[in-house]
Design a protein around this nucleic acid. Sequence first.
DNA 1: CTGTATTCTGTAAACGATTACATACCAAGC
DNA 2: GCTTGGTATGTAATCGTTTACAGAATACAG
Lengths: 330, 330
Amino acid sequence: MNIKEVAKRAKVSTATVSRTINNSEKVKPRTAERVRKAIEELNFYPNTHARTLVSGRSRMLGLIISDITNPFFPELVKSFEDEAVQRGKEVIIGNTDYNPKRMAGCIQRMVERKVDGVVIMTSEADPGLMMELTRRNIPTVFMDTGKPGPHTANIRIDYAQGIQEALQHLFALNHRRIAFISGPMNLESARIRHAAFVDGMKERGIGDHLMLEKGNHRIEGGAMAMRSLLKMSPRPTAVMASNDLTAIGALGVIQDANLKVPDDLSLIGFDDISFAHLTQPPLTTITLSRTQLAVTAFAALEALIRKEDGSHADYTISTHLVMRRSTGAI
Amino acid sequence: MNIKEVAKRAKVSTATVSRTINNSEKVKPRTAERVRKAIEELNFYPNTHARTLVSGRSRMLGLIISDITNPFFPELVKSFEDEAVQRGKEVIIGNTDYNPKRMAGCIQRMVERKVDGVVIMTSEADPGLMMELTRRNIPTVFMDTGKPGPHTANIRIDYAQGIQEALQHLFALNHRRIAFISGPMNLESARIRHAAFVDGMKERGIGDHLMLEKGNHRIEGGAMAMRSLLKMSPRPTAVMASNDLTAIGALGVIQDANLKVPDDLSLIGFDDISFAHLTQPPLTTITLSRTQLAVTAFAALEALIRKEDGSHADYTISTHLVMRRSTGAI
DNA sequence: CTGTATTCTGTAAACGATTACATACCAAGC
DNA sequence: GCTTGGTATGTAATCGTTTACAGAATACAG
């Protein structure tokens, strides 16, 4: 079932069939009609591999994320895919699991599959590896990480903004002993969030003896870190977590210890995943619009793909505090 | 950067390079070494499209799911992908969003991409469309739906078992006015769950005036249905939901109405997503092992791909009640 | 009718791998 | 030194499209 059989049935050449499929050049309406009928009757689907092989374009976009089981990412994937499907592109997802080895595997697959472009929403690989994509002239959009370069766009997320708002909120509520549970430190986004917290505390004159615990952006990591924090004396009166899953893990531990949020401890997450407002109490967190991020990333990538000059572009996305009951607000 | 350049650099023919890459036939160790060195130096990745075109195998598997933002599915995707990556296969995901049109698009893409096999974990398309895959001799594993046929395996999930256990549990706690919030009725799994509930109630002598509400397997659907249920009088003393997201949506509405779970109302979900034990109170639900499902699906598919006879196979996966505080247990 | 411009269609060469088949190489046995 | 047989390598066809180029058909003006 290939283009030849269609051609034979429609009594035209394969070139004409190809032109009809792609409406790349003028085909006489009556001929096109015959071809379409033949395609219909034979139930013909063009072979994308043959197509990609000769044209060099695969109509696929790569999207690399760090953890598909973190609801932040599926929401992002969905928005991105919606954009792509509308434009007749396909998305293939690479899931790194916070693991540089798997990240390398993802990038290799993207190259092998000859994707038209890649969006990298994670950063646990060594920079050299990521540059492999630009070295092969594959348009790439980096989030957080990545230096300006040809065939490249950067999306910078203003994590610091949201964290400043959060600290301001906590200080207004008279919290001073504020702990922070970080994410995996091989992630640029986790490093930035961590640094923004430390800087914010320093600016407010509390630079020493910060209560910092390590998490991993997963629920168990948050739980484990929280157990350590509860052993401290005096223990913190507020906890900020590097993401919502971490906060949710912490919340469970706090409640298991028969402490009340926000009466005994205030809690703030990051990401505003859909479950954040469903916890008891609903979680105060920092929001980052998935739709905006996805739309920006897609637009940035399309722009890179279209223009030949390989010039660079930068985008910024803001973050903001969402007050809910886990800090006593509302 | 293609196989020819590698061949030239290693001073061998392209055939030898191909053989080294695939270790398909004996290559003298010294020659293989030279080839590998050339590949390394040139940073060569084989073009998968060329490869697929001639060999007919793409090393990709399709996985079609209904909603990537429902945590049940990412967990499943992850398990499935782990299996696949270990065996050197890739997974491409199709997300239907409970939409038959998008389902059709997913299937078309799987055909176009020449996947080696497909696992269909959803069922909102018309059966004829799904048969398109088997008509093209693409090995396919169906969950819930699908009839026995060549190049086909079926995984049946014993939803009824878990639902029976749940009803037994509720009856033991003296509930009689038990409501059910269903899922999207174009999904076979939702229909089966619904039917199992109705059957179970009938068996227990409560077949009339059942309190049945429609949901959509999403949080808002559960919330909306619950609002209707709360308006009833007498209102139900227990609610079973077709999945956990539905139950979580219902839980929010119940608590907003200042009612207590389980004191005023008991609640049971389905799926046992990772957030189910993090709600307040933790959600009693019915568990269905994602790992077991993924491993079974992968094994079934591999078996279909390997054997040429196109014979059919059936598998069953069980479900069980997990008691937590939302029904007053523990 | 003829010539010319325009539109449409066909021919055939790519694209980059795999693989059937042919051939070169080499060691062992006599 | 000559078979024999196995191993290692090379040659060239092939997969199913796209697309540059050439050639046919059509329209239109004179």
